[in-house]
Design a protein around this nucleic acid. Structure first.
Lengths: 122, 122
DNA sequence: TTGGTGTTACATCTATACTAGCACATGTTT
DNA sequence: AAACATGTGCTAGTATAGATGTAACACCAA
């Protein structure tokens, strides 16, 4: 899977890498057991420093998307902790939906949006 | 409405102020036309610098939640730009739902979560 | 041994967040 | 008129996080 980074983005590079991997898994471009490029490889591909990729991988490991192994590198391995994931979604959506509610976006419109987004995920 | 800040939080103070105001409007503790404390007042109340409050107010103005007036201070005034608000919600939810999908959280569970959160907003 | 893996430890540089103080124009209050 | 409060603008300082650079370490496979 190709990982593209916008160096001019306001978003931190390691966050962009993290997001690309999460989106890759969600859209099945990355599957359980797939290997990610090594920190040095990906850093060279993107043209950034090794430590930045390393940081992204550690975030992904912490969030339960990959495992890190000294001999096999980074491998996609999903940790299905439902409670933790649900709480994560809840806390992040609370603020977004607060703003949406302020702007008179109805519950039904949010549902439609959720369905539309889920369409792209498998 | 009382605005509480956690100085030990990893979240920037001006972001916390922004979030508190958005939540206040969503839960009707703040209504259209209500005045917010002046930047100096709120800064004194919280015990932080005036410029930090000023930054929070400018973010809120940019996002269409308040207007700033030299003589009346900050006033809650919602800019109902549905398209902009919908796009904002869509882009923010895309990543959250990607992670949720990876963790096997179903569309129905997200819908239930949306309903639950919307319960608290009026 | 050689090469690739993640890991760790230093250092430097830049941008952002926050604080601080001052000055200004405007509007309100006394 | 005078005093005060308002948002705004400006400069300057500190602290932290993001990103980079170099180097070294232990591990494993070919």
């Amino acid at each position: 899977m190709r990982i593209e980074i916008d160096l001019n983005s306001e978003e931190a590079i390691y966050i962009q890498i993290r997001n690309q991997v999460v989106l890759g898994v969600a859209t099945s471009r990355l599957c359980e057991g797939d290997s990610l490029p090594s920190v040095r490889q990906l850093a060279d591909m993107i043209g950034i420093n090794m430590h930045t990729v390393n940081k992204a991988y550690h975030v992904l490991k912490q969030e339960g998307f990959i495992t890190l192994d000294n001999r096999r590198g980074a491998v996609v391995a999903l940790n299905h902790d439902r409670m933790q994931a649900l709480e994560e979604v809840r806390s992040r959506m609370t603020l977004i939906l607060a703003a949406a509610s302020c702007k008179n976006i109805s519950r039904e419109e949010v549902h439609a949006l959720v369905d539309e987004i889920y369409e792209g995920y498998c």
